[in-house]
Design a protein around this nucleic acid. Structure first.
Lengths: 144, 144
DNA sequence: ATTCTCACTTGTATAATACAAGTATATACT
DNA sequence: AGTATATACTTGTATTATACAAGTGAGAAT
C-alpha cells in the first residue's frame, strides 16, 4: 500500500547517483559541489564561521575547515576575525566570490532548465516546493 | 522569471549533500550506495554485465568492475559466463543477495517513511512521480 | 588558578571515483 | 586465413570528499 514510499526510495537512490556523478566529475562550471554550497550559504544567509557551516551541512568541522581554506586561497571568501571571540572567524564573500557563484548558479540553472524544458510550469513549481519540504524533513530527521 | 528553476536548483544541491552524507557515511543497513543500486538494478531488470551496468549508471566501467567484484566476494551475486561471448559475464543475484537487498530496502523505506510521515498521500504520490520524471530527464540530458 | 569546553587546524585513513594500461576474446577487412 | 581493430573486463594509480583523532590556543566554569 505505500507504493509511493517505494517509488520515492528508489528514485532517490538513482537521483543521488546521477547528481553526484554530474556535479563531482563532470563539474558544472568551476566550483565543486561543496564549494558551491558553501558560497551559496554564505551569500544567502550571510557570513558564518566554520562551525556553523559544518552544522548546517552535517559535515565534519574538519571537512569544512579545509573547504573554507580552499575558498579563501582562491580568493572567493575572506576571513574576518570575530571581534569578541578570539578563536572564531567569519567567512565573508569577496566580489570575486560573488561573481564566480553567480556564474555557476546560472550554469546550473541552465542545465536544469534544459532538463525541465518539457515540464509544465505547475509541475516545476510543485516539484520545487516538495523538494524544499523534503530537505526540511531530512534536516529534522538527522540525529544530532 | 523562472523562480521555480531557481528553487529546484538550490534544493537539488542541498539534497545531494544530505543524501550523500546519509548514505555514504551513516550507512543505512550494511550495503553502501553503489552496492545497493547495483543489486537493485539486477533485481529489477535482471542479470547484466559490467558494461551494461556502467552505462546505466554513467559510471566508469572500472568502477563497476570493482563494485561487482566486491558484491561477488560477499556472495550477493554470482558470475555467469556468457554462453556466446567468451569475454563477457553476467551478474546474477544469489538468494543471500536478495535477502540483503530486501532488508536494506526496507530500512531505507522506513527511514523515508518517517521523514514523510507528516505528508499527505497526494503529496507523496506526486513527489514520487516528479522524481521519476526528473531522473528520466537527467538520463536523456547526460551526454554519451 | 585550574580544569573544562569550544573553534578551529592538521594528520591520517578510507571510499568512490576517473583515467590509463593490460589481457583475452570477438569482429572486420583485406 | 591472417592481421588489425574493437570490445568486455581487470588492475594500477591518482584524486577527491569525507570522517575520526590529535593538537593548539582561547573562552568559561568551578
Amino acid at each position: 500500500m505505500d507504493h509511493s514510499i517505494d517509488v520515492i526510495e528508489l528514485e532517490m537512490a538513482i537521483l543521488v547517483r546521477r547528481l553526484v556523478s554530474m556535479t563531482t566529475y563532470r563539474k558544472i562550471g568551476n566550483l565543486d559541489r561543496s564549494a558551491y554550497l558553501l558560497l551559496h550559504q554564505i551569500a544567502s544567509h550571510g557570513s558564518a564561521g566554520v562551525k556553523a557551516l559544518s552544522d548546517e551541512f552535517h559535515l565534519d568541522i574538519s571537512t569544512v575547515s579545509r573547504q573554507a581554506a580552499a575558498l579563501e586561497q582562491k580568493g572567493y571568501v575572506k576571513r574576518i576575525p570575530d571581534p569578541v571571540d578570539g578563536r572564531a572567524y567569519s567567512l565573508e564573500m569577496t566580489d570575486m566570490g560573488e561573481e564566480v557563484l553567480n556564474e555557476n548558479k546560472q550554469a546550473r540553472q541552465e542545465s536544469i532548465g534544459k532538463m525541465l524544458s518539457a515540464w509544465s510550469d505547475g509541475e516545476r513549481v510543485i516539484f520545487g516546493e516538495l523538494l524544499r519540504k523534503f530537505n526540511a524533513a531530512i534536516h529534522e530527521e538527522i540525529p544530532e
